[in-house]
Amino acid sequence: MAADAVQYGEGLMCEWVALAAGGLAGWAVRNIGGKADRKHATWRLAEANRLLLDAETRGLEMHRREIANILIGIDPELMSRSYDRGWQYQRELLASPPARIEADMASLAHKFPNYLDFDIIGTRHFVPYSETLRSTSQVDIIDRYLDVSKWLLLLSLRNGKKPHRMLFDEEDFKVLGRCMRSVRDGRLKRRIEAAMETYYLFDRTLSSYGTEAAKNDRQSFEQGDRSVRRLYTQYSPEIEYGVSLREPEEYGVYSSYVHDNGKITHTYSRSEATFEKRDYLDWR
């Protein structure tokens, strides 16, 4: 009986140890698994927030591009001045204590509680910007370009580290200068072409129907906001015309040269009221 009791006791002990081991193993699995799950969930949440912020930031970068193109469409000089103001803000921010970043972010966050509030266009994607912005002033458009730029800049500096590439920099500014000149020169070229088209129509009509006196006095032509007059440059094989334009006021020189093979080459230059200056246009 004593032996049976000992054997029975040992059996109960083994069962208890097995149950205890199983319980500890279950607790360990649940506890370790729970920590892993919580850690994974925390990582997933942080990653989701990062991806959301990245998507919203990219959206703002695209909207900044939209606003820039609107400014260029109004006047390339507006874009250049707006960029310069943003660059100046960046220089001030880099020279300020970190508290300035948090203060400016808080101010902009109060002004724009949601990312969508940055959108100055705010209409269906197929509605022309000209219709949407009909009642929006140039000052408001410039301010929105600066606000979006400021927010992007503040985000890049918020962690206390200077980003590898700043939002405004010398290289960017050089590209801006070339692009804005190309836009300005392209517009002047089109204005000169329109003026010369009108002039040639006038010249052909005069040749066909004008009096001899009028034909002899046709060195200049004026209509509305444009005027054209023939220029004479000594020893030059080119035929040149000075083009005066108003609203906005610009001056250009239109030149044509007939080669020996009959090919005609046209050149366009930016000039001033006396037409002595020649700054050849560079357009795309």
Rank of each mutant, 00 (worst) to 15 (best):
G22P: 02
R30M: 11
R44I: 05
A18C: 08
V29D: 06
D4W: 04
G23K: 04
G11Y: 11
L45M: 09
A41W: 00
G11P: 00
N31D: 14
G22S: 13
H40V: 02
E10F: 07
A46K: 15
G26W: 02
A20C: 02
R38W: 03
H40E: 10
L12C: 07
D4E: 05
K39V: 03
A28M: 14
L24P: 02
L45F: 08
E15C: 12
G34F: 12
A20Q: 01
G11H: 08
N31L: 11
G23I: 04
R38I: 06
A41P: 01
H40P: 00
A20I: 03
A21L: 13
L24C: 14
K39G: 01
A41M: 04
W43Y: 06
A25G: 11
G33Q: 10
A5S: 07
V29C: 11
L45T: 06
A46I: 08
H40W: 08
K39M: 09
D37P: 00
A41I: 04
K35I: 03
E15K: 08
W16P: 00
C14N: 14
A18V: 02
A46S: 14
W27A: 07
K35L: 13
G34T: 08
G26H: 01
C14A: 14
V29S: 09
Y8S: 09
E10T: 01
V17M: 14
G26P: 00
R38F: 08
G33P: 04
H40Y: 08
G9H: 00
G23F: 12
E15H: 03
A20N: 04
E47C: 05
A48T: 11
W43M: 14
W43R: 13
V29M: 12
M13D: 03
G26E: 01
L12A: 04
Q7S: 13
W43E: 14
L19A: 10
Q7N: 11
G26D: 00
D4C: 12
K39S: 08
R44Y: 05
V29R: 01
A28L: 15
V29W: 14
V6R: 10
W16E: 02
L12E: 01
V6A: 10
C14G: 07
C14H: 06
G26F: 06
A46H: 10
D4M: 13
L12N: 02
L12D: 02
R38K: 08
K39I: 05
L19Q: 07
I32Y: 09
M13R: 05
A36W: 07
R44E: 15
H40C: 06
A21R: 09
W16H: 07
E47I: 01
N31K: 09
N31R: 10
K39C: 03
G34V: 03
N31V: 15
K39F: 04
R38A: 15
C14E: 13
R44K: 14
Q7Y: 12
A25H: 12
D37V: 06
A18Q: 06
G11F: 15
V29E: 10
G26A: 11
C14L: 14
A46V: 09
A46Y: 06
W43N: 10
A36M: 09
M13P: 00
